[in-house]
Simulated assay, not measured.
Amino acid sequence: MNKWNLIINVGRCENCQNCVIAARDEHVGNDFPGYTAPADANADSPIRILRRVQGDAHMVETTYLPVMCNHCDEAPCMKVGGDAIRKRADGIVIIDPDKARGRKDIVKSCPYKAIVWNEELQLPQTWIFDAHLLDQGWPQPRCQQSCPTEVFETLKLDDAAMAEKARREGLKVLRPNLGTKPRVWYSGLERWETCFISGSVSAQVADVVECVKDASVALCVGSQKVAETVSDGFGDFRFGGLARGSGLYRVEIQHALGNASGECELGESVHLGEISLVQVQNGVEVT
């Protein structure tokens, strides 16, 4: 059977908050019997945008990550909530607005923090994939409809087809180690999960310090070269996809104008700043 899935393109999110606003507009004060009760304007939003800033000036990278109910096939909330939570045949998880009343324990059951508490109604609530709209024939939920940068893609596929699409396109889910089997997938999630090492290559030419283009830059761990690249027209280079807290790295730079090296201990992303090339002749630096 075909089931609903949502793909989120991480690199496209600009934190405009349109998806958050659309969800609030759809649900605050609006009752959808059988789906959800009216959302509380004072409660947290079930869709939120997380922010991660990496690097230092002048190489800073900001990444935004939309997070909402993952509509997991092995949903922890269902194990806690019992008959107060149901999973539809099309994959959507619904918290019953009557049976879940007073069940604040359901909020704590979600490892993604995607269930919010409606204090006014004493009710746990989440993003319901706008199931009430999909059941009316809408092709997509409000978050996708309102997004100007096409962060979201909604599709209805059987599990085998979705798994093949995920494999082919490198889609990932949040915290796969939990085994919750989310139906919300992410494209470009490595931007959120990994780190980079960057720097800028310069050299003194006559009396002017110039950016160095096409310098050969190698990234090394111990005596092993693990990656290589070349500097761009601004002298900048960047190595991405590195694991957080992965230890000591060294960069080795070579160019006709000279050589240089630098090292860092990688916890979060590191910008090495300006690295000046040095000419060496017969083992002596040329100044």
Results as ranks from 00 to 15, higher is better:
residue 73 D to Y: 05
residue 193 E to M: 09
residue 254 Q to W: 01
residue 103 R to I: 06
residue 102 G to C: 09
residue 27 H to V: 03
residue 20 V to L: 08
residue 38 P to Q: 08
residue 188 G to M: 08
residue 205 V to T: 11
residue 210 E to A: 05
residue 117 W to T: 13
residue 128 I to P: 01
residue 21 I to D: 02
residue 266 L to W: 04
residue 198 S to N: 03
residue 109 S to E: 04
residue 219 L to E: 06
residue 160 A to E: 15
residue 18 N to Y: 13
residue 187 S to V: 01
residue 178 L to V: 15
residue 155 L to A: 05
residue 189 L to H: 02
residue 203 A to K: 04
residue 21 I to E: 07
residue 26 E to Q: 10
residue 278 V to F: 04
residue 39 A to E: 04
residue 237 F to C: 05
residue 267 G to V: 13
residue 252 E to V: 15
residue 222 G to H: 11
residue 21 I to V: 12
residue 79 K to N: 10
residue 258 G to Y: 01
residue 208 V to Q: 13
residue 119 E to R: 12
residue 220 C to S: 10
residue 3 K to G: 04
residue 202 S to V: 15
residue 206 A to Q: 14
residue 19 C to V: 06
residue 47 I to T: 12
residue 56 D to Y: 08
residue 216 S to V: 15
residue 14 E to T: 14
residue 119 E to W: 05
residue 195 C to Q: 04
residue 220 C to D: 07
residue 58 H to Q: 08
residue 173 V to I: 13
residue 244 R to W: 09
residue 96 D to H: 10
residue 80 V to R: 12
residue 112 Y to G: 00
residue 60 V to F: 09
residue 224 Q to Y: 05
residue 133 L to V: 01
residue 285 E to T: 08
residue 68 M to I: 01
residue 235 G to P: 02
residue 141 P to F: 11
residue 262 G to Y: 03
residue 243 A to H: 10
residue 76 P to Q: 12
residue 25 D to V: 09
residue 187 S to P: 00
residue 141 P to S: 07
residue 243 A to P: 00
residue 29 G to D: 11
residue 272 L to T: 14
residue 116 V to W: 00
residue 212 V to R: 03
residue 142 R to S: 15
residue 108 K to R: 00
